[in-house]
Amino acid sequence: MSVRYVPVQWNRIKWVYDGLLVAGVLAYLVAFLQIGAGMADATRPVDGAILRMRAFGSCAFFLLTVILCIGPLARLDRRFLPLLYNRRHFGVVTFAVALTHAAYVLGWYFAYAPTPPVAALLSSNTSYGTALGFPFEALGAFALVVLALLAATSHDFWLSFLTAPVWKALHLMIYPAYAALVAHVALGYLQDVDNPAFAILFGGGALAVAGLHAAAALEGRREARSAGTWVAVCAPGEIADKRARIVRLPDGDRAAVFRNGARVSAISNACAHQNGPLGEGRIVFGCVTCPWHGYQYRMEDGCSPPPFTEKVPTYNLRLRDGVIEIDARANAPGTPVPPLDVAGMI
């Protein structure tokens, strides 16, 4: 397939998604600045720069909280999948908001330090041995560096160049970054804030992330336990013609079971190009077509039609008591598997 890289791949849905995202961020910042000033303690008035610093900092925290909720929500309920596919733009916006927060911190507290502002921030408090008075700024700096790393490697090129395992391993750093961010707020602003509203929102958001990840892990474990080598998919009639049913396999991989008329075949759900969700695509001109970039594969062997050379793994299928079952052990990419004939069952 010949898809050249472009700076940003936008379509109508992504424009709407990004528009709502930016509007949401702006609405939060305006609301925080308007309401926050009014709720400030009369005996300890907050300077405008500090208020803006807190507005951007708390906005970045809540954005990252939403980002981390999307993954487990999509695993628990497929209706959240559209949120998952545009999450990279969400991450880049979060980095921009967090960077603005950091710029306010350096510009307000360390502008007149005798050393460079970053050096002053990291060396002004070195009480790493105590919880009370812990230099929470370093935790925020760590989270910001990770956000920068992830935003800088969010282009499709990086997924293809580094390969999915390396890229994904790199992006798993978001988890320690979030833990550091929770600690940054818990040991910093939470120690000072008098208004319980922020503490409730902050704690509720962080616990939602923790709870959803625990629930998604339990759900995955339950599925893995109930499945053997052969995993039940569904009755043939439950798969719409030229569409697929996505199956989660015991090892965590996903397969896409496609029906083309009376023939059913299964291939990996991950496109060879950039791991797009093949199971959410459809069959066009007899080939499974990736919804992301239009890469195509033949159902029966997982190979792209000539002259293209991409291949994805295939899976063996069988029928038992009117239900399609899939062999959880994937075949090597490009292995031919005869389609299952389901004539008379649809």
């Binding site: 993954g71 625990a214 995955g220 991989d253 991950a270 990419p333």
Partner: peptide, 14 residues
Amino acid sequence: ARHRPPRVAQVRIG
């Protein structure tokens, strides 16, 4: 390996 992102590690880290 392109088809095998580290999903198990992701669950553990989660």
